[in-house]
């Protein structure tokens, strides 16, 4: 996450990818959902994944996060082969994800939702976890809701809580499955600013999103999937698109 104490990645033109997929194949019965898909997520970049329903986006997402296993191919996190590792181990190694349908822990308070993410990522020390949680709460503007139960909060807030759970683990890679679904315009705007800034701070972001406007605004790279393959790049870098928010020093670093 942004105020991460971890060393900043070297913002060279082609930094080593944080997360890579190598020739992933996934078949369901006779259907090939992923057909030799390869993908690199470099640090400091937002990569968007688009495509029609059934193109294989969700399968790719699940294979990357560990919710599903590819039939062949490799998933590498910082060069380490994590193809066979279960989802929770990947999460502990710094691979965070959110869900298309909001996934929070309704029986826990907002702060505890975030704390689960921080603790499981290895911040076992109470104080260390406390600070990770407090920082994330502050960052997302959730301070005043810290002790509220997550059940019954409005959709936009719940999306933030879920994002906070992922961010409080201070991940290196963030996989987002339609994070703007159900958000109103202002909330979507807030999300765009946040994601751009997080990426600027070195986070590798993969965004599966239908909101084309959001994708065009914040993504550095747009990949389109069709019939289980990633189509040759046609989209240009978002560098040509005007940045949404006034950029400042930190954002310019990346």
């Amino acid at each position: 996450m942004s105020p991460s104490p971890s060393p900043r990645p070297n913002p060279s033109p082609s930094p080593a990818p944080r997360l890579s997929a190598r020739a992933l194949v996934r078949r369901f019965g006779g259907v090939t959902a992923l057909d030799q898909v390869s993908l690199d997520l470099p640090p400091g970049r937002i990569t968007a994944l688009t495509g029609h329903n059934g193109a294989g986006k969700s399968t790719l997402f699940r294979c990357l996060s560990g919710a599903d296993r590819p039939d062949s191919g490799q998933v590498l996190l910082d060069g380490r082969d994590i193809t066979r590792l279960p989802e929770y181990t990947r999460a502990r190694l710094g691979l965070a994800r959110t869900f298309q349908q909001i996934a929070v822990f309704p029986g826990l308070s907002v702060a505890d939702n975030l704390r689960v993410g921080a603790e499981q990522a290895g911040r076992r020390g109470r104080l260390e976890a406390d600070f990770a949680v407090a920082r994330t709460l502050r960052l997302l503007g959730l301070d005043h809701l810290a002790d509220r139960h997550a059940s019954g909060l409005p959709t936009g807030t719940l999306r933030l809580v879920e994002l906070g759970r992922a961010l409080s683990a201070e991940p290196g890679v963030l996989l987002l499955d339609e994070p703007a679904a159900g958000l109103d315009r202002a909330e979507s705007e807030q999300l765009a600013v946040l994601l751009t800034a997080l990426a600027a701070d070195g986070l590798a972001v993969l965004l599966v999103e239908h909101d084309r406007e959001l994708v065009d605004r914040i993504a550095d790279r747009v990949l389109t999937m069709s019939a289980g393959r990633i189509l040759p790049a046609v989209s240009t870098s978002a560098a040509s698109t005007p940045a949404p928010a006034p950029s400042d020093g930190a954002a310019d670093d990346a």
Partner: peptide, 10 residues
């Protein structure tokens, strides 16, 4: 509360 999210949180 949410088993898949628990997995995803580590």
């Amino acid at each position: 509360d949410h088993e898949p999210a628990a997995y995803a949180s580590g």
